[in-house]
Design a protein around this nucleic acid. Structure first.
Lengths: 339, 339
DNA sequence: CTGAAAGCGCTTACAG
DNA sequence: CTGAAAGCGCTTACAG
């Protein structure tokens, strides 16, 4: 019913050349005589030929697909990353084979394993909390890898991350300058390296503050526990005047909780969120955020990957980009009354 | 440096069987003697063998990858779709080769073409505004296809969409019941089939209303023109008391515009949006929405695709799912004063 | 520069 | 049930 796709052999026959010659004009590695070249081009045009990339990948032992493994797509930041990667990849003649680890190290391992079965030419990984096995698997396969967003221990991996410590340092410092003396940081996983770096910044800013500043870090798994936590803390005699949350999902939950609890927000409590959600400046008051340099991260990661794929570079490539701390109406100075 | 991946030949030799036998235990099509089967399994285990899916795809002339083409990922609804598709696909042993059309028919064509070069086993397409060439291309290739979300003309394609007409009918009816008599609908493209169906619902509800109801449809391309439009219309002697926007991006723009224009919202004008954005119930007042049955759409689409891939079904498969109309605080009844 | 041929790692008739 | 062999559509040394 459907005519089979023309192959390189069809092109060769129509152009009266060998398949090797067709391959050479296609890949442009070796110069082909002008007349034959034109004949081949014409044949390709006539037949509507396009390469079978499965065959090419098999023969070259590496496909033009790049594997992309992110925790999920519901986070606006990850979605933006995928968006940029797809653009870069397609411009460069690559396709994205995308899998989701759903924050689960075991699933991450399996999904990456699936990617490797396709001999992907490269791999971009936003690691889960415990990516060690996955990293080992990738290293064994010899597949070029770049780790994005969340730094990972062995220093030998190519990584592009952003500087969580200094972003948090700056944010906290500015909160303190506005009179905040009791700051809570709500996180998903204390053990996560990203989180640890943020806590370092938080603690350092508090330590260096001109006044006494109390900080606390809380782990939350879901909306219920987060709401419960806020409910308890905000009713204490000495409640936090500022809350920092580690991602945009938590920001959403917190907003809902503050509403439910009928907290005077942002009058009594200020809010700052990592991971700028797209709705940050749609809500009232507009949400203050730490904005990751998504675009720069993606572009640099791709650069690293290409260099690794073409063996242009040997040593570990690492780069830490600066994040932008943006205070908006969700943060207010602490008035004497509120203290 | 990196030991090459073991091949089926390595497994065969270690298990002292032929490669065909290994293939048979792997694919389970033909029964293999128990002892050999165990030997093969052991060899696979020992070697850490996994199939080269590029080779398999080449030989079978169809890979276990499914192409997914959506307009972009920044829309929460599309992101959710991708999320579900990835889950289903990976559970079934498929990978997702994802491309973005960026709403551009030409880019859509090129990106789908790229997908076809990999001999994807199936294709899921959320079509652009003018997908005809792309659809033709896919049809020619004989690749199983299911069109999602936006219905498309030739009735022969498998499609799972949702019922825009009846969703709009219900929404408008309810607005009218709340006293709204002048309703504006802001869209991206009047020509889009989805839009036309919505307009049908709008017009029908108005026609059947117990009182005289005026409706109007406006096309908008960007935030500036949308803001200008609202500015003009809301200052007229007989301004709309309710605005319906056709997607979540427009909802965001409208919200900003209402704020800028210092409109008494939702007192003087109510707002309803198609495409539930994730921030819908974070804003104040909470946004009223028409919620697509994302999960059901994805699952049904996958079902259609598998059936098509396994040739279990011949005729065109079509399903139209019901959307949910959710009124929240962004919609208020019209008071006599306001009329 | 060009062609003939080997081979990438699988699956699938085809004999036995 | 099992093995030997052809072939999927390419690329890449290898001669010439």
């Amino acid at each position: 019913m459907h005519p089979p796709r023309p192959t390189i052999l069809d092109v060769a026959q129509r152009a009266r050349v060998s398949v090797g010659t067709v391959s050479n004009v296609l890949n442009g590695t070796i110069r082909v005589g002008e007349q034959r070249r034109l004949r081949v081009l014409k044949a390709i045009e006539d037949l509507g030929y396009s390469q079978n990339l499965l065959a090419q990948g098999l023969r070259k032992r590496r496909s033009t697909m790049v594997g992309l493994c992110v925790p999920h797509t519901s986070n606006a930041y990850f979605a933006a990353l995928v968006n940029i990667f797809e653009e870069i990849a397609s411009d460069r003649g690559f396709e994205l084979l995308q899998v989701l680890s759903r924050q689960d190290p075991k699933k991450e391992f399996e999904r990456v394993q699936a990617l490797l079965r396709y001999n992907v030419g490269g791999l971009i990984l936003v690691p889960s909390l415990a990516p060690d096995n996955t990293l080992k698997l990738i290293a064994q396969s010899g597949t070029p890898l770049v780790v994005v967003d969340r730094p990972v221990r062995p220093e030998r991996y190519d990584q592009v991350t952003f500087d969580n410590r200094s972003a948090m340092l700056e944010a906290t410092r500015r909160l303190i300058a506005l009179g905040h003396r009791h700051i809570h940081f709500i996180v998903r996983q204390k053990a996560l390296l990203v989180t640890r770096h943020r806590i370092e910044g938080l603690v350092e800013a508090a330590r260096k503050a001109p006044a006494k500043v109390t900080t606390a870090v809380f782990e939350c798994a879901d909306e219920v526990s987060l709401t419960a936590h806020l409910s308890t803390e905000l009713r204490k005699a000495y409640p936090p005047s500022a809350i920092i949350v580690s991602n945009s999902i938590f920001a959403a939950w917190t907003l809902r909780a503050l509403h439910t609890l009928k907290v005077n927000y942002p009058g009594d409590v200020s809010l700052l969120a990592f991971d700028e959600p797209e709705w940050a400046d749609l809500v009232t008051p507009r949400l203050s955020v730490v904005r990751q340099p998504t675009d720069a991260i993606a572009r640099r990661a791709w650069e690293f990957l290409i260099r690794r794929m073409t063996h242009e570079f040997d040593g570990a490539q690492r780069e830490q980009l600066k994040a932008e701390v943006i205070f908006r109406e969700s943060i207010e100075p602490v008035t004497r009354r509120a203290r």
